[in-house]
Nucleic acid binder design. Structure first.
Length: 900
DNA sequence: CAGTGAGCGAGCTTCCGCTTGACTT
C-alpha cells in the first residue's frame, strides 16, 4: 500500500516522478493554483489589513482537492513538491489550507532536476513552508487585483471602448502605442550614396566585390543614423555630408575614368559565441522569427512535446542546463560534429534579473537527446520543426565559438578636385563552431543571413577596377512596429509578465480586448489603445510606468527575504503617503477631474489654419473631427501612421458631404442616397431622420472598390442594392452571388466559393458558376487532401467511413462525427470495427456534454473584430507571407525534416 | 461569410499567474 503522497503542479511531471518513486508513493498534480480571489467583487478588505476572502475553489480545483483528500486517507506523509518559486510556495500553502490534513506528516520538498538522484536527495532534505514567500506571492496577487478591479471601472466611465486596465496589459499596450506615436511623428529623410562593383586590376585573384562611397574630401557621407527622426534633417551634431540626387549624379560623372587605388587593407580576427539555450521568451521569439509561429501556437506545440516527454518544461525563465543536459549535449556534439566542436569547459549561462529559476532551460529531455530524424514518425510537422529548433539551439549552446576574420579595404579615387574614399568589407570563417548547428536570425531583418563575403587579397597601393558605379538612393525608415516576438522580448527585458503569461498577454491585448490588431506580423494599436493609454498616462502615471513591475519585484524580493512587509507596501500604494494613493485616484472627486472629451480624443495635428484635427473614440468605432464643427465617422482600416493631416482632411471631405440623393427607387418609392460610414461609402434606400430609431433597417449596400460616392450613378446604385443576386440553379439548388466578410462569394446551400472580383457579382453567369463548383473546394489556398484510407460503409447507417489527415492529426469521419485516431494506433491500420467504435465513443461524448453556451457579449464584439480581421486578411494576401526556412547546416541526421 | 451616420440614455464589464482541458479538421 502506498503511504506517501507527493503533490506537484503538472500532470506530466507527476507521471515522470511517479516512475522514479515506486509503489510506496502516489504522485498527484495540483494543476496550478487551487484557490483564488472571487471573480466578482474586490475580495479584499482594504480597511482591515488587506484581509483576503479567498473564494471557494472552482469546480476544477474542487475535484483536485477532493481527489487528493481521498488519496490522503491511507497516507501517513504528505510531500508538497510544487515549484520552488513564489507561486509554487503559495500553491503549497493554499493546498494545505484546503486539505487540513490530520494525522499526516507534512513536508515541503523541492527539486531542480527530474532524475532519480535529485528526487531522492530532495526527499531527504525537506523543509517547512516558507510563509515569507507565500506573503510575497499573495501580495502580488492582491496588488494585481487592486489595480485591475479599481482602475478598469474608471476606464469604463471615461474611455467606453476600453474594457480593462492592468499592471501587465496596460504597459504592454503602451509600448505598442508609443512605437506608433514615434512612427506618426517620424519624418523621412532622403539621401544618396554610391555603390560600386570592383575587382583587383592585377594578380590572379580577380573576384569582384561590392564597395560603397564613405567619404568626400575627408568628410563622411551621411547615413541613416545622421538624421533626426523627428525632423528628417541632418542632426546638428553630425559632421556628415548629405548627398542629394543631383550631387550624387555629378559625382558619378566626375569619377568617369578615375584611378582607384587601395589606401588601406586591414584584417582582424573575431570570434562569435553561441546563444544560450531557450527559455520561454526566447523560444517564442525564435519560433516566431524562424518558423512564423505565434506565441500561443509555439506554447501549445511545446506543451504537447512536454507532455509526451520530448522536451523539458516549457514555461521557464532560466537558461540554465542541468549537468545531465550538459553531458548529453557534449556527447552528442562530439558524435555528430567531432571533438573539435566541444569546448574544453562546459558553458554555463546566467539568467537575467527577476528570474525565479524554478525550472531549467527548454531542451530535449532525458540523459541522451533524441536526434530529430529518430523522432520524425512520432511528431506532427509543427512539433517536428519546434523540436528541431530546440534541439539545435541546445547543442549549439554547448559548442565551440565560431572563428574568422573581417577584412576592410579602403579605396581612394579623385573626383574632380575632391578626393573620395570607398569602403568594402568582407567576413570569412576559419572555423564554424556552433554555426555548424545553428545560425541566428538577426532581430531587425529575420530574412537576412550573415553570409560570408570574401574579399580578394590586396595591399596598399594596389590598383582596382570599377566595373559598376551607380547612385543608391535611400530613405530613412521609421522605427519598426512590434511583432509578437519583439514585444515578448521587450516585455521580458523590462521584467513585465512571466513565462506562463507572455502568450496570454498577447492574446489579451489583441483578440480579447482589441487594443492591438495585426497587420501581417506587425502589431498596430487601435484608436481605443491610444485613448486608454493617454488616459492612464495623465491620471495613473505610475501604473503605465514601465518600471512599475520591476519595482514591485524588488519589494517582493525583500518580503520574501523577510526584510519588508507586504501589508505596508500595499497600504502605501492604496492609501498613499507622499503621493496620493490608488484610493484617491479612483475616487469620485478625482473621476470628475478626468474629462471625457480630453481623454477620449487623440490629437492628429493642426490644419493649415491651426484648427486641431482629432479622433474621438466611442463604444463602437471612432469619429474624426476638425475643430468643433466638422466631423464624420472614422473609417476603419486606416493605420494610425497613415493618418496624416492631409489624409484626415480628405476623409473629412468625403465623410461630411452628407447624403447625396441619386433617385427614386421604383419598387418602394423611397429616395436612394449615397453616404459614408465607418466601413466606407454605401447606398441606402430611404432617408432616416436623425434621432428616429426605426425598427425596420433600410436596405444598404457598400460601394465596390473603385466606385466613388461623388460619381456613382442611380443605375449603379440599383445594381448594388439588387444583391444578393440569384445566378441560377445547379443540381436543383439555387446559386446566389453576394458580398461577405471575406469579399465576394457564391453560395449554393451550405457550399460557398469566393470569386475574383466584386464586379463579377453582377455579371457572373450560371455556366461560369457551374465551372467554379465543378472544381474541388479550396481550403484557404490549399486543396483538401484525399483521405488516407477508406474503410467501407458504416454497418448501421451505411455512411462511408474514411480516415483523413487534418490539422490536428489523423481522424476518422463518417461525415457526421469526427473522431481523432488515438496515439499509438497507426492511422493506416485502423479497421472498420475500431473506427465504428471510436465514432460511437466520440458521439457519446458529444451528447453527454451538449452545453456550449454563447455569451451575449461575444456576439456583439464579433462585429468589431470582424472588420479588423478583414483588413488584415486583405493586406496579408497582398504581402504574400514569405516562408521562412530554418537555416541550418546541421549534419544529415537533422536534414530532411524542415522543408514541410 | 456584413456592418454603416453620432456619441449621456440600459446594464454589464475588470486583474495576473499557475495549470490543462474540450475543441477544432
Amino acid at each position: 500500500m502506498p503511504n506517501h503522497l507527493v503533490i506537484v503542479e503538472s500532470k506530466a511531471k507527476a507521471e515522470t516522478i511517479g516512475k522514479y518513486l515506486g509503489s510506496d508513493y502516489t504522485v498527484m498534480a495540483s494543476y496550478g493554483h487551487v484557490r483564488d480571489l472571487p471573480e466578482k467583487g474586490l475580495g479584499i478588505d482594504v480597511d482591515n489589513h488587506f484581509a483576503v476572502e479567498w473564494a471557494l475553489p472552482q469546480d476544477r480545483a474542487k475535484k483536485v482537492v477532493a481527489d487528493i483528500k481521498l488519496a490522503m486517507k491511507g497516507a501517513d506523509t504528505l510531500y508538497l513538491a510544487t515549484d520552488e518559486d513564489r507561486e509554487g510556495e503559495s500553491i503549497a500553502w493554499h493546498l494545505l489550507e484546503l486539505l487540513q490534513p490530520k494525522g499526516v506528516e507534512v513536508h515541503r520538498m523541492v527539486f531542480h532536476e527530474i532524475t532519480e538522484d535529485a528526487i531522492s536527495e530532495a526527499l531527504g532534505n525537506t523543509r517547512q513552508i516558507d510563509m515569507r514567500l507565500v506573503e510575497a506571492a499573495d501580495g502580488r496577487r492582491i496588488m494585481d487585483r487592486l489595480v485591475g478591479y479599481l482602475v478598469s471601472p474608471v476606464l469604463w466611465r471615461r474611455v467606453p471602448s476600453a474594457r480593462s486596465a492592468g499592471r501587465v496589459q496596460s504597459p504592454a499596450v503602451r509600448l505598442v502605442v508609443e512605437r506608433e506615436r514615434a512612427r506618426m511623428k517620424f519624418v523621412a529623410a532622403q539621401y544618396c550614396d554610391l555603390s560600386a562593383i570592383m575587382n583587383a586590376a592585377t594578380g590572379d585573384d580577380s573576384r569582384s566585390f561590392a564597395a560603397r562611397l564613405v567619404e568626400i574630401a575627408g568628410q563622411p557621407i551621411a547615413t541613416g543614423k545622421d538624421f533626426d527622426a523627428d525632423t528628417g534633417l541632418l542632426l546638428e551634431t553630425s559632421k556628415a555630408r548629405q548627398l542629394n540626387d543631383a550631387e550624387a549624379d555629378a559625382l558619378v560623372g566626375a569619377l568617369d575614368g578615375a584611378v582607384y587605388t587601395v589606401t588601406s587593407a586591414d584584417t582582424r580576427p573575431f570570434t562569435e559565441k553561441p546563444k544560450e539555450p531557450f527559455r520561454t521568451s526566447t523560444l517564442q521569439q525564435e519560433a516566431g522569427n524562424k518558423l512564423g509561429f505565434s506565441a500561443g501556437r509555439t506554447m501549445s506545440i511545446a506543451q504537447g512535446l512536454y507532455e509526451r516527454g520530448f522536451i523539458t518544461y516549457m514555461r521557464t525563465d532560466s537558461a540554465n542546463l542541468s549537468e545531465q543536459a550538459i553531458t548529453a549535449a557534449r556527447i552528442q556534439v562530439a558524435e555528430l560534429y567531432g571533438k573539435q566542436f566541444v569546448p574544453a569547459e562546459p558553458r554555463r549561462y546566467k539568467s537575467g534579473r527577476n528570474a525565479q529559476e524554478a525550472h531549467e532551460a527548454i531542451r530535449p529531455s532525458g540523459e541522451r537527446f533524441r536526434v530529430p530524424a529518430s523522432v520524425r514518425s512520432e511528431l506532427s510537422n509543427d512539433e517536428m520543426r519546434l523540436y528541431e529548433l530546440i534541439w539545435m539551439r541546445t547543442l549549439a549552446s554547448q559548442m565551440e565559438n565560431a572563428r574568422g576574420n573581417t577584412a576592410t579595404l579602403r579605396i581612394g579615387a579623385q573626383a574632380g578636385d575632391e578626393a573620395v574614399v570607398f569602403r568594402a568589407s568582407g567576413k570569412t570563417y576559419s572555423f564554424l563552431g556552433f554555426r555548424a548547428a545553428y545560425i541566428d536570425v538577426s532581430e531587425d531583418d529575420p530574412s537576412a543571413e550573415e553570409a560570408e563575403a570574401v574579399l580578394p587579397v590586396l595591399a596598399v597601393g594596389d590598383r582596382v577596377n570599377c566595373s559598376v558605379l551607380e547612385v543608391s538612393p535611400h530613405s530613412t525608415k521609421p522605427p519598426a512596429r512590434f511583432t509578437e516576438a519583439s514585444l515578448v522580448k521587450e516585455l521580458e527585458s523590462r521584467g513585465i509578465g512571466r513565462p506562463s503569461t507572455y502568450a496570454s498577454i498577447i492574446d489579451k491585448i489583441s483578440s480579447t480586448r482589441g487594443y492591438v490588431y495585426k497587420q501581417g506580423n506587425a502589431l498596430v494599436p487601435s484608436w481605443t489603445a491610444f485613448a486608454k493609454t493617454q488616459c492612464l498616462e495623465s491620471h495613473f502615471a505610475n501604473l503605465v510606468d514601465y518600471r512599475f513591475t520591476a519595482t514591485m519585484e524588488e519589494v517582493l524580493d525583500k518580503v520574501a527575504a523577510g526584510e519588508a512587509e507586504a501589508e505596508k507596501w500595499l497600504d502605501e500604494f492604496y492609501f498613499g503617503r507622499d503621493t496620493p494613493g490608488l484610493k484617491q485616484l479612483v475616487s469620485q472627486e478625482n473621476l470628475d477631474t478626468i474629462k471625457m472629451e480630453v481623454v477620449n480624443s487623440v490629437f492628429i495635428g493642426n490644419d493649415s489654419e491651426g484648427i486641431p484635427i482629432t479622433i474621438r473614440v466611442w463604444k463602437n468605432g471612432a469619429s474624426l473631427h476638425r475643430g468643433e464643427e466638422e466631423k464624420c465617422a472614422m473609417p476603419e482600416g486606416v493605420l494610425p501612421d497613415d493618418l496624416t493631416v492631409d489624409r484626415a482632411i480628405e476623409i473629412l471631405a468625403k465623410g461630411t458631404i452628407g447624403p447625396r440623393e441619386l433617385g427614386i427607387d421604383p419598387e418602394t418609392g423611397l429616395t436612394i442616397i449615397v453616404l459614408t460610414g465607418r466601413f466606407g461609402p454605401f447606398v441606402q434606400v430611404g432617408i432616416l431622420e436623425p434621432g428616429t430609431k426605426s425598427k425596420e433597417k433600410p436596405k444598404r449596400a457598400s460601394l465596390f472598390d473603385g466606385m466613388d460616392p461623388e460619381t456613382i450613378t442611380f443605375e449603379e446604385a440599383l445594381e448594388l442594392l439588387s444583391l444578393p443576386r440569384t445566378v441560377g440553379e445547379i443540381d436543383g439548388e439555387e446559386v446566389t452571388a453576394q458580398s461577405g466578410r471575406y469579399g465576394p462569394y457564391l453560395k449554393k446551400g451550405t457550399d460557398s466559393r469566393t470569386i475574383g472580383s466584386e464586379a463579377q457579382l453582377l455579371t457572373i453567369t450560371i455556366e461560369e458558376a457551374a465551372a467554379i463548383y465543378s472544381q474541388p473546394k479550396q481550403a484557404r489556398g490549399r486543396i483538401s487532401k484525399p483521405p488516407l484510407a477508406a474503410l467501407g460503409a458504416h454497418p448501421e447507417t451505411g455512411a462511408p467511413i474514411v480516415v483523413k489527415d487534418g490539422r490536428f492529426g489523423p481522424y476518422i469521419t463518417d461525415g457526421a462525427t469526427n473522431a481523432t485516431v488515438p496515439r499509438g494506433i497507426d492511422p493506416a491500420e485502423v479497421t472498420l470495427e475500431t473506427a465504428v467504435q471510436l465514432l460511437a465513443e466520440r458521439a457519446a461524448r458529444v451528447d453527454s456534454n451538449p452545453k456550449r453556451t454563447i455569451k451575449k457579449k461575444a456576439v456583439k464584439k464579433k462585429a468589431v473584430k470582424k472588420a479588423v480581421k478583414k483588413k488584415a486578411v486583405k493586406k496579408a494576401v497582398k504581402k504574400k507571407a514569405v516562408k521562412k526556412v530554418l537555416k541550418t547546416a546541421a549534419p544529415r541526421l537533422a536534414q530532411g525534416s524542415s522543408e514541410d
